[in-house]
Design a protein around this nucleic acid. Structure first.
Lengths: 149, 149
DNA sequence: TCATTTTAGTTGACTTCGCAACTTATTCGG
DNA sequence: CCGAATAAGTTGCGAAGTCAACTAAAATGA
């Protein structure tokens, strides 16, 4: 880990993102969950029955990505997609029993990464960090929604 | 930008990374530079003549990625790869005049993203943020090199 | 009411990325 | 000095992700 040269926020974020993907794809492999799907599953553990569009907006991905990620989770037996009765355009995602069975393992692995990352960073600074990241995310979101509708 | 639910560092980083890619791929399109290549060009503006392996380690990507990204930059006319005289395994990347011609535009776009992100975040907190991100990166790097050699 | 617009989801084409297998060149131990 | 190990780069493959074009359903408004 030499890391000299022009260190910017953007570059640190890119590297951290790649590292997280490596960790998650390796650790979640036994559960047949890919690094691209874990966030959807996490969101559904938080709240079942969300529509693809709701998930798309929360996770901030393209809707095509949501469709494919949920398709994979469905193939893996963790998720079931059900058409909404009132609005037939909407598909809601529910958890299958298989998902509940791996929930504990899942969270152990996922929160494990945060633990690794924040080792040696005091709680108060962690909170400030999250705060600042959220500010940046708000800024970016505002810019993007203004400049590429 | 609703962003409720379980907000973790990992998730914020993932979203910010996707946003940066959207911004960069759109803004750098006129220069025929992809979001995956910009970091290599930035590194070369910093220091020309680095080998693919040096770039790979600094940028923390797979060497396959470096080979392909530099190949695209070469196709676009920004980079020339030259075999090292002493060690014939090594290829060094140098900038073509075309790169110098777009350098100003390039940096305006790239630093523009940081400006957007850090809007409203005091300088001192920006520095602390970078500091903490670096700590996390060190932690992650240490973990990954120990657990997947 | 009914034509137009908007919304949710799907699919195809493309980029970015990592892993594994391979080639070629260098280094190292005996 | 030579065979084995290591190192740099390339390529095939598959996962993750975006964009654009499409379908079908719902909302809007004249």
């Amino acid at each position: 880990m030499q890391l000299q040269g022009r260190i910017t926020v953007g570059r640190l974020i890119a590297i951290l993102h790649r590292m997280a993907n490596m960790y998650l794809s390796k650790e979640l492999k036994d559960l047949s969950i890919g690094a691209g799907q874990y966030i959807f599953l996490a969101e559904l553990f938080d709240q079942e029955g969300q529509s693809q569009d709701e998930l798309t907006k929360k996770i901030f991905v393209d809707k095509a990505n949501s469709a494919r990620a949920l398709g994979k989770l469905e193939d893996a037996g963790y998720v079931r997609r059900v058409g909404d009765d009132k609005d037939k355009r909407i598909k809601r995602a529910f958890l299958e029993p298989a998902a509940r069975e791996v929930e504990e393992d899942f969270w152990r692995i996922v929160t494990g990464w945060s633990d690794i990352l924040t080792r040696g960073v005091p709680k108060q600074r962690q909170e400030q960090l999250i705060d600042d990241l959220r500010t940046m995310l708000e800024n970016a979101g505002e810019y993007l929604s203004k400049n590429q509708p």
